[in-house]
Structure formats: C-alpha cells, structure tokens
Amino acid sequence: MLGGGRERFEQAITEGPERGATVLHRARQRGYQVITEAEGLDAVRPGRPVLGLFAAEALPVEWTGRPAAPAGTAPQRCVPADPGRGPRIPSLEAQTRKAIELLEAGARQKGQGKGFFLQVEGASIDKQNHDADPCGQIGETVAFDRAVKAAREYAVRHPDTLVITTADHGHSSQIVPLAARPAGLSATLITDEGALMKLSYATHAGEEGQEHSGVQVRVAAEGPHAHRVLGSGDQTELFTTLRLALGLR
C-alpha cells in the first residue's frame, strides 16, 4: 500500500489481543517496509510487503488556485501547489511504477503463470470536485493520467496485461461557455495556450460541498478481454472482466 493517511495508522487498536498497540507498530512487527518519503521508496526492494505513508492525511495536491465562487472568479493560471514536494512525496506516477516493479518481481518468484493485480486511485480528483477547486481537480487528473501512462507502457512490454481505467461516479464540474451564468459556483482558468476556459460547479448552491452526479462514466481498457468494456454496461461487470483476465474461477 502506498499513499497518505499516516495518522490513521498511528491510531491505537482498541479491542482484541493486540489492544493498545498502534496499527503502524503491528505492521512493522509483521515485516512491512514502512517508508515516509520519496527517497525511501527508491530504496525499497522486493521480498517484503511495503507500507508507504507520505502524508499525515491526504497527499497534497499537485496544482493550486482560487476555488470557484458564486459570481465566478477572475481569470487565473493554475500553479504548482508545492514546488518542493518532489523530494519528499513521490508522484502518483512514481508510486505506480514502483508498485509494478515490486509486484512483477513477486510474480516471478512465485513461478511462471503467476500474475498480479494492482489498483491505482487518483483519490483527490473527487475531493477537489467536492471543494469546487478547479486547479486542484485538474492537477490531480493530470497526475492520474501520468500513472495510467506508466501502466500502459508496462502493458506494451507485456501484452498479456489488462489495463482498465474508469471512475466510480460522475461529479459536479463541467466546462461551459464563457458567456454562461451558471447556477452555483464557477471559475475561469487561463489554459497553457492562453485561452480562457470556464468551469461550472452546480450540484450545490452554497459552500457546503458539491455533490456527485448520476451521469454515465467512461470505462476504457486495453489488453486481454478489453472488448468486454465496449459500449454501455453495468459497472459491476468489471469484476467478471478482471476475474477472466486473471484466470480465476
């Protein structure tokens, strides 16, 4: 496991034979390699489970800017949220590449025909949508796109690999015309090309947090059984697609 949430692992166990110990302490006792910064991730080697806790709670976002407002915002460019996070906190792409490296090594040790399963989540895309934070949201989407690229590059070298990319639900943000006066909140961004782009957040009128939407979400795939996600389908069918790709009964 790689990500944030260090404070949750530092909580004490309240019941059972391990009562009083912290979850983090028990992980170390059970042989986990516990790392808290990017440099430690580089040093991790296969053979033992890994627990990466790079922030006390959620990982900091990649980009920052003013959140959307009821009357809109003045045009703004998104900027890096923390230029110094690189040496301390590995990107989602770096975490993905390391996870693939470790899982592939473990699969080789188990013998031919033993594959692996990896789930990567860009969790803060959702969080920033709830906060109507366009720069945070888009920056995390870019970070997730780079992680998908890492998985697809591995799949090119290993064509028996299935890569599925999807979301668990739709959300509030949408691009609207610059002249629009949408209900709820909105923000105007300056793109890399110097153009203006207006985003609307209209699933909640106040500042208590935007809600999910019920729109259909895209499911994209490449590799064995990728044809099963073409067109429309029940998202729970992804379980069967993954089971077939892994050769599980």
Rank of each mutant, 00 (worst) to 15 (best):
L189G: 08
T166P: 03
G206I: 04
P182C: 15
V148K: 06
E207F: 12
V148P: 01
G194N: 10
T203Q: 11
I190R: 10
G184K: 07
R181S: 04
Q174M: 12
A202Q: 12
R157T: 14
L196V: 03
G209D: 02
G184Y: 01
P177M: 11
T203L: 08
S173F: 07
S186W: 01
E193G: 13
R181G: 00
H171L: 09
H204L: 02
E208I: 05
S200K: 09
H171G: 10
D145R: 10
G206T: 07
E193A: 12
E211V: 03
T166Q: 13
H169I: 04
H169N: 06
S186I: 01
A187E: 07
H169L: 03
V156S: 15
H212V: 09
A205C: 04
G184M: 05
T203K: 08
S213H: 13
A151E: 01
G209W: 00
P159F: 13
E211G: 05
A155V: 02
E193I: 00
G184P: 01
T161R: 12
E193C: 04
A187V: 05
S200W: 04
E208S: 11
G170F: 07
A147P: 00
L189E: 09
A155E: 10
D192K: 09
H171V: 02
Y201C: 05
L189N: 07
L189I: 05
D160Y: 07
I164R: 06
M197P: 02
G170N: 12
E193Q: 14
A151T: 03
A147I: 01
T161Y: 05
G206F: 03
H171T: 12
Y154W: 14
R152M: 15
A167P: 07
H171W: 15
G209C: 03
E153W: 06
R146D: 14
L189K: 08
T166A: 12
Q174R: 15
A147L: 00
L162M: 11
T191K: 06
R152L: 15
K149A: 15
T165A: 14
A155F: 02
G209V: 02
S200F: 02
L199M: 10
V163A: 05
Q174T: 04
H204R: 05
E211A: 09
A155Q: 14
A205W: 11
T203E: 04
